[in-house]
Write a protein that binds this DNA or RNA. Structure first.
Lengths: 211, 211
DNA sequence: GTCTATAAACAGATAGAC
DNA sequence: GTCTATCTGTTTATAGAC
């Protein structure tokens, strides 16, 4: 506590940096090739450490995988937490769509790994899904239902609306190869990014705005 | 040619059956655990054949994987081929959404494997994507553009519209675990299925129908 | 904390009998 | 066509020196 921070920093900072380098490398590889398609050797090489050194920081491959997933879930949930009832429905939905598309643009690896995990039945996230996600989604669905009851939104099922926003925004990260094969563009292109934001916002709002 | 068919059938039918059993087992496992997460031993066991027998029918694991993908692509493309310009836009879009959701309900394995392949950069489907899918999508996008020009559809980008339908319909297969964790339902439930069809159709049409 | 060497397990593929 | 046995390479994980 009262120790000089410089000394602690000297000892701890490199450790943190290595852990983070490994976690970053692991995210990149796991998200492309999955847990079984990636060897610890590859992760170590990309992170710039030796394999045995990596296994000093993470007891085994699965533990590393779980650590990557944990970081992921927070990033994935953040935009949903921002979704607020105090706001104008159209603004709130438009902002949420934009935020999710920013994640798809800036963290496509995270989006893909999340998708991979879901496809496999989320063996490691199932607990979190049932607890944390379930309660937060129930809360946000109630907000949406409030808007519907107040006549500020068409009577759509709140859960399906949430699914639609998730699906349409993540699609641009998870199916980026397909999107690029067909349009020649990626979200990294600023013009294409804004065009995507507008289109998704327009369709969703057109579909759920008050009749 | 002129040989009695019964003899040929006796010799060939079992071979076809075995091949198909293996392909079916492979689809189920590859779609959950990916190419590297599945061993040929597991596929053989599920198909009810021995490992070496499987390798008599398929030279190696990759060849089996490619065979599975080829069958897949046709199933995935079929609903898009049905999408026709001669029809009423609202009917054509509603039918397409329903057809895609039927695939998500009846062939979730195929949908998931397709998604897996996309996430990994579609190393084996890239060629098909650039050729076949590209041309068929261009054709359908032209149909949609025709409707827009005729004032029968709001001026949305046809490609983004297609992406939205793909994303929202496949979501119910690829993220089935999440959907089930949050709603307690799957598309196998007839009531939930119809509710999903209506909601997706309503939002999409609300978003793109003429203003 | 980091390295080299190696143990132990597994999976893909082949050889050859039947 | 189908089986058993086996070879081969890869990969995870550990032991132990520095």
């Amino acid at each position: 506590m009262t120790k000089p921070k410089t000394k602690a920093a000297k000892a701890i900072a490199p450790v943190q940096n290595k852990r983070e380098a490994v976690l970053g490398a692991a995210l990149g590889l796991f998200s492309r090739f999955g847990l079984h398609g990636t060897s610890v050797d590859q992760v170590a090489a990309r992170a710039g450490v030796s394999k045995s050194n990596l296994l000093y920081y993470f007891a085994n491959k699965e533990e590393l995988y779980v650590c990557v997933l944990r970081e992921l879930l927070e990033l994935w949930l953040a935009p949903l937490r921002e979704f607020s009832a105090e706001r104008d429905p159209q603004q709130a939905i438009a902002d949420y769509i934009r935020r999710k598309l920013v994640v798809s643009r800036d963290s496509p690896d995270a989006s893909r790994l999340f998708c991979l995990e879901m496809i496999q039945g989320a063996p490691l996230l199932r607990g979190e899904l049932d607890r944390e996600l379930r309660s937060i989604v129930a809360h946000k669905a109630a907000v949406i239902q409030g808007w519907i009851d107040a006549g500020r939104l068409a009577p759509v099922d709140p859960q399906h609306l949430i699914f639609m926003v998730w699906a349409t925004t993540q699609h641009y990260a998870d199916f980026a190869v397909q999107v690029e094969a067909l349009t020649g563009k990626t979200l990294a292109d600023p013009v294409f990014f804004e065009q995507t934001v507008s289109n998704v916002q327009a369709v969703v709002w057109g579909g759920v705005g008050p009749r």
